[in-house]
């Protein structure tokens, strides 16, 4: 079994997929860092001084103004309302929600990337993990070995899990190192609030906890990793089911983008909350933004995602074991 997994890791590495993923991450993180840097510059220019309380107060006022403009959707309005109350809470407790430094960048980057960026990277590795063997014909060589089919598939899946893990960790490291050059490397111990919940557009602060930023980041990356595994597992299933890699990538991509669009639309469509792509924004629960469908919680979303992943695994194995290969 170890040999098999080693063999699969070798394939992933030899195809230079990890290198490609790392390169994409490095380029994009540099871009985001630069954008963030410009934003900070603009703030300083506009407000003159750099005290965070001034900036935060200004953000609150700006959001309040956006709230009063007509023609914004109810979903978006609820989001903004929660955000204002949260910012006010930070301000009242004298806690800076964006302590300057690389850890803050890493934190917000993980939050932004969980719904689309990370899943896309994972698809690069996962989408062709089985189907490429079939299109190249190597699957026959693999299956003629005296090893059970499910073991072969399992070794592929384990190799996928390992690559996902290292990609997520590398993303964190890259974000830290690249943004640290610009913003400085300190700020791990900065206080962060988590545990906000929203009930009917009102912010509930009775379970709010104050934790260090490094704890928050660790939790966040745990969630990013979980989402990555679920997306990876689904792509893995598609890779088993569909002969063409581009088809399985296309299906996955369509689902992810549909999820992004739907998240802004579905607050009145209750049963949408059982779709996996609506549940991807797990870090939003940590930060306390209002969920796409009212009543969704972190554990609910994790549960839904887990069920999807388990079903996908089941389908993958039962199909792969019985499939005719020719």
């Amino acid at each position: 079994m170890n040999k098999l997994i080693h063999n699969e890791m070798l394939k992933i590495i030899r195809k230079r997929k990890l290198i490609v993923v790392i390169a994409i991450m490095a380029v994009l993180i540099s871009l985001f860092t630069y954008a963030q840097f410009r934003e900070v510059q603009r703030q300083i220019e506009k407000l003159g001084d750099v005290d965070w309380r001034t900036t935060l107060q200004q953000q609150i006022v700006d959001t309040q103004n956006r709230l009063t403009s007509s023609g914004i959707s109810d979903e978006w309005k609820a989001q903004l309302q929660i955000r204002v109350q949260q910012q006010q809470y930070y301000l009242d407790n004298n806690i800076n929600p964006a302590e300057p430094g690389a850890p803050t960048f890493v934190r917000s980057f993980a939050q932004e990337s969980i719904t689309l960026f990370v899943p896309l990277l994972i698809m690069i590795v996962a989408a062709d993990i089985v189907s490429s063997e079939r299109s190249a014909g190597t699957v026959k060589l693999l299956l003629t070995r005296p090893v059970k089919r499910w073991k072969i598939l399992l070794s592929k899946y384990v190799a996928l899990l390992l690559s996902i893990s290292i990609i997520v960790v590398l993303m964190g490291l890259l974000a830290y190192v690249i943004s640290g050059v610009v913003f400085g490397f300190g700020g791990w111990k900065a206080p962060i609030l988590t545990g906000f919940t929203s009930i009917g557009g009102e912010l509930n602060t009775s379970h709010v906890q104050l934790i260090d930023q490094w704890q928050y980041i660790l939790m966040e990356f745990g969630l990013v990793w979980f989402v990555a595994i679920v997306v990876g597992t689904l792509s893995f299933m598609l890779s088993v089911l569909l002969k063409s890699t581009s088809a399985s990538m296309g299906v996955m991509l369509a689902a992810l983008i549909a999820g992004l669009i739907l998240s802004n639309l579905v607050s009145s469509w209750q049963s949408a909350k059982y779709l996996f792509m609506i549940n991807l924004d797990l870090t939003g629960y940590l930060a306390g933004s209002s969920p796409p469908v009212p009543g969704m919680t972190l554990l609910f979303s994790i549960g839904v995602l887990a069920v999807w992943a388990v079903i996908a695994l089941f389908v993958s194995f039962s199909v792969f074991v019985r499939q005719d290969v020719y």
């Binding site: 407790n93 893990s165 379970h207 709010v208 906890q209 966040e220 990356f221 969630l223 979980f226 554990l299």
Partner: peptide, 20 residues
């Protein structure tokens, strides 16, 4: 990452009173 993930779940389940 597994540790981070289980910590999150444990943290969410325990629902402590506000520590701010």
């Amino acid at each position: 990452l597994l540790f981070g993930f289980s910590w999150t779940i444990q943290n969410q389940l325990s629902k402590e009173k506000s520590t701010v």
